[in-house]
């Protein structure tokens, strides 16, 4: 328990540092006033607005009041959507979650069988194909994979929609695009942790006792290989969200990634800041969760 509390307390400085970096960048980016007023605003009007939103205060005062507002969930107003930035981001989150979960399911469905298969038949042709495919999957930029999938399934065959969200069919191509990189990483991981476990004494003992090899692989080896696997999956959150930014843009998927890229293009800084803080919070929480799950699954590590 002590350990978990300590880990949770460590989150606070991390979020503060992130907010500081983002705030500093936006501060350097300069005056938002020009974007908030009509082109023919007089100098007086500009000065008035600057004063009223606190832009004439020194940097540290502005940062202080920024942190104070953010803690209360106030990231400012998006000038493009004309509403509270946090609620705009909030509305887009379910779409991103849907895509991310679908991608993970696909990755798991590919990685577990191929990871186990290639580990149990090391250096066979299956192993070579699986590890080769995993390397290629890692080397391919996922936006290109997405475009190639559109080219094949939507343009040439005409069986799946090009973009947008709605039906199950809309989900398939973006989920494969996002899932491929994760699947590559997972396959490699499962393979190496299975290989390590298959060389352990208790596996040899089980085999020598005449237990069927299928049973040895699943009951003794795979269950133990799951421990690092669960943690690494949670640690992939950052990669997953990074990939979602691109994938959503390729497929016009209305999630947080597409929102962010549009906000960057229109310099809607309230949205950009809210997106960064929300994404960072999600990644940090998932990492904490991974840590806790790891300690629960592996009783050799004590929670202190």
């Amino acid at each position: 328990m002590n350990y978990i509390v300590r880990r949770m307390l460590q989150i606070i400085p991390v979020l503060l540092i992130i907010s500081f970096i983002v705030f500093t960048l936006v501060f350097i980016a300069g005056d938002p006033v020009a974007l908030m007023l009509p082109d023919d605003a007089t100098l007086e009007e500009i000065e008035q607005l600057r004063e009223s939103i606190g832009l004439n205060e020194p940097f540290y005062v502005q940062y202080g009041s920024y942190v104070f507002r953010v803690v209360q969930g106030d990231f400012g107003e998006s000038f493009r959507y004309g509403q509270d930035a946090l609620s705009v981001v909030w509305e887009r989150l379910p779409a991103t979650f849907e895509l991310a979960i679908a991608a993970i399911i696909i990755a798991i469905m590919v990685a577990i069988p191929f990871g186990i298969w290639s580990a149990t038949k090391q250096n066979s042709s299956i192993d070579l194909i699986a590890t080769g495919a995993a390397v290629v999957g890692k080397a391919m930029p996922n936006f290109w994979l997405g475009i190639m999938l559109i080219l094949f399934f939507s343009v040439t065959l005409g069986v799946l929609p090009v973009s947008g969200r709605g039906s199950f069919a809309h989900l398939i191509l973006p989920a494969i695009t996002l899932g491929t990189g994760i699947a590559a990483e997972m396959t490699r991981l499962i393979r190496s942790s299975m290989l390590e476990i298959l060389n352990q004494d208790y596996i040899r003992t089980a085999k020598s006792k005449g237990i069927k090899s299928v049973q040895v692989i699943y009951k003794h080896a795979f269950r133990n290989a799951l421990i690092p696997f669960v943690t690494i999956t949670a640690l992939q959150t950052s990669t997953l969200i990074g990939g979602a930014l691109i994938t959503e843009t390729v497929f016009a998927w209305p999630g947080i990634g597409q929102l962010l890229i549009q906000a960057v293009n229109t310099r809607d800084m309230a949205i950009v800041q809210a997106c960064v803080m929300i994404i960072a919070a999600i990644v940090i929480l998932m990492n904490l969760l991974a840590d806790i799950i790891y300690r629960i699954l592996d009783p050799r590590i004590k929670l202190d």
Partner: peptide, 20 residues
């Protein structure tokens, strides 16, 4: 803690903010 902070944000996201 600085390293943790950078790790909590996908690299591409950080790059986007800088480029913005």
């Amino acid at each position: 803690r600085f390293v943790d902070s950078f790790l909590a944000i996908p690299t591409i996201l950080f790059s986007l903010v800088f480029l913005a």
